[in-house]
């Protein structure tokens, strides 16, 4: 049972109040109609399953109904940070930072 800090309610709440809403930072293609089937398939179906740091979306379903992002260690279940929609994570895995070119 996680204990999750809601960045909108600004305090920790029990996991029962939240729903997990999948991987974060998947942008909807700007022009879906001109995506190839493969690009659209990647957007729709392909998700990371990292051992370690993962960025995911949660929604405070039984609370303020706001979506937010969370960086979580999938091994230890430690929540490293939560941040609002539109914000970027402060904590990223080495692999991700290389991929982003910010390493």
């Amino acid at each position: 049972m996680f204990y999750i800090y809601c960045p909108y309610c600004q305090e920790h709440r029990e996991e029962e109040e939240f729903h997990a809403a999948g991987q974060a930072h998947i942008a909807r293609p700007a022009d879906p109609d001109n995506c190839t089937d493969e690009e659209w398939g990647d957007y729709l179906y392909f998700r990371k399953n990292p051992r370690g740091l993962h960025h995911e979306m949660w929604v405070h379903a039984a609370g303020c109904r706001k979506f937010f992002n969370m960086t979580r260690d999938t091994q230890s279940y430690e929540i490293k940070e939560v941040y609002k929609m539109g914000e970027q994570p402060q904590i990223v895995s080495e692999q991700d930072s290389i991929a982003r070119g910010t390493a």
Partner: peptide, 13 residues
């Protein structure tokens, strides 16, 4: 309702 909120909050704020 959650679906509408999802798109509003994440895609089209």
């Amino acid at each position: 309702l959650e679906w509408l909120e999802l798109y509003h909050q994440t895609e089209w704020p």
